[in-house]
Design a protein around this nucleic acid. Structure first.
Lengths: 149, 149
DNA sequence: AGAATTTACTTGTGTTTTGCAAGTGATCTG
DNA sequence: CAGATCACTTGCAAAACACAAGTAAATTCT
């Protein structure tokens, strides 16, 4: 039945959050929007993770339905669609930062230890900067690609 | 083949973290261990999310392989196996807390606003308490079940 | 001691989700 | 107008998942 609301597994906020973006791809799209400054379908496709086109389309749809991202067709080019984070989306910044710190600390990631240490130490400053960029629609990547890998 | 390393999609720490626990169930098991004080297969099964036995077995196996949890058979009862968080596992506390805050703030969760506000404000204190409980093997739930829902 | 119960799983089956390749239509560029 | 670009959709095979049932070892009951 279309329109049937999915039932929640439990009232736990963690469970609810995972129902929305608990999969291998959703948060990577959010990451691309949040720290890499990507905005279009093709850019996400080429971001290096190897997501398939149908899955990407499906995740964009779900993230939009969850009001984490919004789609806006570009005026200057009718083919393009720009995706951007909503307020709910940018509020995922702390989650993203902690994921980054955990991943960098516990797995052999490409980030130098100094960068990780700084991020963990200046948590609030990093988050403020992410939020500022979002407000100002400043899409320069937070981490240069050669450092971020 | 067990022990065969999966190839990584990218060197990004976020991507690496999501490869390990980017699904609907893994972090719920970590949550049960971290804040609810659950430790056995049956307890996880009955935690209210409705995970199937084969999936639970599979996730426990994967989390153990990722060294996020460890299994130790109980001495006093040869049938039981206790699972516990490793150091890598307890280091997921900040991720868990931010997920909790996001979920509670943005979705209609069962938590009262006052509890959320306190958690967000006393972040460091909450994390210290979680870590202390882990060190002391204190398994009393962080949140009473009637509040945590 | 034997029977029933508990515990931690495994196995089988059908459904859903995913990954891959190819294709489509609208728009833009040369 | 021809070809390229962009954001997708479609078809199909493979993998993951959900559900129900079953199993083996350890423990408790009688």
């Amino acid at each position: 039945m279309p329109g049937t609301p999915k039932q929640r597994r439990s009232g736990c906020p963690v469970s609810i959050a995972l129902e929305v973006f608990g999969d291998r791809w959703s948060l990577l799209i959010v990451r691309d929007l949040m720290v890499r400054g990507l905005r279009t379908f093709t850019e996400f496709l080429e971001s290096g993770e190897g997501i398939a086109t149908n899955i990407l389309a499906n995740r964009l749809e779900k993230l939009e339905a969850a009001r984490i991202i919004a789609r806006e067709p570009e005026e200057s080019d009718g083919r393009k669609v720009n995706y951007r984070l909503t307020e709910r989306g940018i509020d995922l910044a702390p989650v993203m930062l902690e994921l980054l710190i955990w991943g960098a600390r516990h797995e052999e990631a490409g980030l130098p230890c100094s960068v990780i240490a700084r991020m963990a130490k200046d948590r609030e400053a990093v988050l403020a900067e992410v939020r500022r960029r979002w407000r100002d629609r400043d899409t320069t990547p937070l981490l240069p690609r050669d450092i971020a890998e």
